[in-house]
């Protein structure tokens, strides 16, 4: 279980996240939703050690600050929205980095496990044919699938996603979410993802956490947490009416 207890993040004089608590159990897909600036991504950054925070983040009851980076990486994997790789690494090299936590030593030799996981990840994400291609020549969707393959190769228990399909076309968006759903279905794992697309949250999430200016506005089953009232309060508009109006254009 991954537990976040009264998490707060300050940046200068600004409180970005204020006393957020939640827990994720195996098999769950928690969607963190809310308007821009609500502190969604900051929560992910706190869990990954990217920002300083107060409060506690517990992995199976143990404070993650006391865990070694390598141990943490075996349990928590992250996929972010932007990837800018400066050098022309091949797809396979980037994916292989996902195995770092399993053989961080100086004289690390490749083991069969690593090979198998890298192959599997490349195949699952459909990047096997492009394994030797430079990541600089990939399209946005292919690059995101490369990093998805990396995190699959890392084989964590908890997958954190920070708007992973933010600038991707619908085809890739569906592809990436379908792959993650399939990954989750293998059991003994959980997903936490930050999304601003509420339709995606409702389609894929099992639970949702709605944030409003860094505070928890609602948490629970996706449809309970993201209901008409809570959304209207947080977004200051009738989200339901707007979404239905959008949908009517397709009829």
């Amino acid at each position: 279980m991954l537990e976040v207890k009264s998490l707060s993040v300050r940046c200068g004089a600004l409180d970005i996240v204020k006393g957020v608590s939640f827990a994720v159990n195996d098999g769950e897909w928690l969607m963190i939703a809310g308007p821009n600036g609500a502190g969604k991504s900051t929560i992910i950054n706190a869990v990954t050690g990217g920002v300083a925070y107060t409060g506690q983040i517990l992995l199976n009851g143990q404070d993650i600050r006391k865990k070694k980076p390598v141990e943490l990486a075996k349990n928590i994997g992250v996929l972010t929205q932007n990837h800018y790789v400066g050098y022309s690494f091949s797809v396979e090299e980037v994916v292989r980095l996902g195995r770092y936590a399993y053989s961080p030593g100086v004289l690390a030799r490749r083991c069969d496990d690593d090979e198998r996981m890298v192959e599997l990840a490349l195949e699952k994400t459909g990047m096997a044919a492009q394994r030797r291609q430079s990541v600089l020549t990939l399209s946005g969707g292919e690059l995101q699938r490369t990093f998805l393959a990396q995190v699959f190769a890392q084989d964590p228990k908890y997958l954190l996603l920070d708007e992973p399909t933010n600038h991707l076309d619908l085809i890739y968006q569906r592809q990436v979410f379908a792959l993650i759903k399939e990954w989750l279905a293998q059991g003994n794992r959980a997903v936490i993802s930050v999304v601003h697309d509420l339709s995606l949250a409702k389609k894929y999430g099992t639970r949702a956490l709605l944030l409003d200016h860094g505070c928890m506005a609602a948490i629970g089953d996706t449809n309970t947490a993201l209901n008409r009232d809570t959304l209207e309060k947080v977004y200051g508009m009738d989200v339901y009416a707007y979404m239905k109006e959008m949908l009517s254009r397709w009829q």
Binding site: T48, E93, L97, Y100, F147, Q150, V151
Partner: peptide, 15 residues
């Protein structure tokens, strides 16, 4: 290698 791909990525894979 991990740093050359990105510092955040390096942290996420356990460096």
């Amino acid at each position: 290698n991990a740093f050359a791909v990105g510092e955040d990525n390096a942290r996420n894979i356990g460096v």
